[in-house]
Simulated assay, not measured.
Amino acid sequence: MNPALSSLLGVLMLLFGATALGIMLELQGGRVTDEARQRRLKLIHRACGYCFVTIYLFLLAVMIWRIAGFREDLPPRALLHAGFALAILPLIVIKILIIRRYPRLFPNVFPIAVTVFCLSFVYISLTAGYYYLKAGVGIYFSLASVDASKMKTEQERFIAGKNLLIHRCSTCHTLERTFVRFKTEEGWRQTVASMRQLNPDITELEGDLIAEYLIRTQALLARGRTTKAVDIMTGKTLFEARCSGCHDIERVNSLRLARPEWEKLVKEMQQNAGETVLTNEDCEVIVNYLATTRGT
């Protein structure tokens, strides 16, 4: 989903939440004594509550869908965003249960509502607030209207890719983290595809330019190093990224196996994880790294 749309929905969610919370203050604070007005406010409160929960569940589903398709470690801001989003869910469930089934606990509803709103404010600020802040200073921009055929030289594409990397990728993690990782060409393209899952505002053209820049930059950084050294660094990065999710790295590093044994072991891991997580090319690079550094 486009960040502009998700940000707008997030702001609407906060407005509905603030309205519902304000009505609770009016009703429970004893400021409204007219019964007819109380009934109207209760209806508005209920409608705002339904709208708040509907938008929240929709945004939560979109977030989970994006995370499910993300192959790299989540950036810190995305982790915080996911943490606050998930923390809201049990509070909403508890609040509904108290209202529907446990009326004697009703005095606890208002503190829970305040907590839900505060968490929602931080949750939305990490996305919508960040988006509008960057849009306001011109950080968010798009090359969707740019005709790739007009970029006639490799240098033009290289510069465009560099600018996109700075503006798109540095918003979630440091660029130093990017340049210490050695990956295969396919590995970089998969990484950029994962980033597009988290931020659909990155167009296909932008993704291609970023991937081309990363691939070319890595080739420049690899100058002066032997092909074997670059292959080992690439394999080490893949090994740590793909295998550490299921295994203790130190445990694997303690093994000493012949190449056929490493090939068999990595193939078994691929069958367990699936080819979408561990591709054939990934396996070949990892086996080469393990056989070279942990062989017999």
Score class of each variant (00 low, 15 high):
Leu8Met: 11
Leu8Gly: 03
Met13Tyr: 11
Leu15Pro: 00
Leu21Ala: 04
Ile23Asp: 10
Met24Asp: 01
Leu25Lys: 04
Leu27Cys: 05
Gly29Cys: 07
Gly29Phe: 07
Gly29Asn: 00
Thr33Phe: 15
Thr33Glu: 13
Asp34Pro: 08
Asp34Trp: 14
Glu35His: 06
Leu41Gly: 00
Lys42Tyr: 00
His45Tyr: 01
Ala47Met: 09
Leu59Pro: 02
Leu60Asp: 02
Ile64His: 00
Trp65Asp: 12
Arg71Ala: 07
Pro75Ser: 11
Leu80Ala: 15
His81Asp: 05
Ala82Leu: 15
Phe84Gln: 00
Ala85Asp: 05
Leu97Gly: 11
Ile98Glu: 00
Arg100Gly: 08
Tyr102Arg: 10
Pro107Arg: 06
Val109Lys: 03
Val109Asn: 05
Phe110Tyr: 14
Ile112Met: 12
Ala113Tyr: 01
Phe117Met: 13
Leu119Gln: 03
Ser120Glu: 02
Phe121Arg: 01
Ser125Trp: 07
Leu126Asn: 08
Ala128Arg: 00
Gly129Phe: 08
Tyr130Glu: 01
Lys134Leu: 07
Leu143Ala: 05
Ala144Gly: 04
Ala148His: 01
Ser149Thr: 14
Lys150Ala: 05
Lys152Leu: 08
Glu154Val: 08
Glu156Arg: 09
Phe158Thr: 13
Gly161Glu: 05
Leu175Asp: 03
Leu175His: 03
Phe182Val: 02
Gln190Val: 01
Leu198Cys: 07
Asp208His: 05
Leu209Asp: 05
Leu209Ser: 10
Ile210Ser: 01
Ala211Val: 07
Glu212His: 08
Tyr213Ala: 08
Tyr213Arg: 03
Ile215Cys: 06
Arg216Val: 10
Leu221Ser: 06
Ala229Ser: 10
Asp231Lys: 12
Ile232Ser: 07
Thr234Asn: 01
Phe239Ile: 06
Phe239Val: 07
Ala241Gly: 03
Ala241Phe: 02
Arg242Val: 15
Cys243Gln: 08
His247Val: 10
Ile249His: 03
Val252Leu: 15
Leu257Gln: 11
Leu257Ser: 03
Ala258Arg: 14
Glu261Thr: 14
Met269Ala: 14
Met269Phe: 06
Gln270Ser: 11
Gln271Gly: 09
Ala273Asn: 12
Ala273Arg: 14
Gly274Ala: 13
Gly274Asn: 12
Leu278Asn: 06
Asp282Phe: 02
Glu284Trp: 12
Val285Arg: 12
Tyr289Ile: 04
Leu290Arg: 04
Thr293Arg: 13
Gly295Met: 03
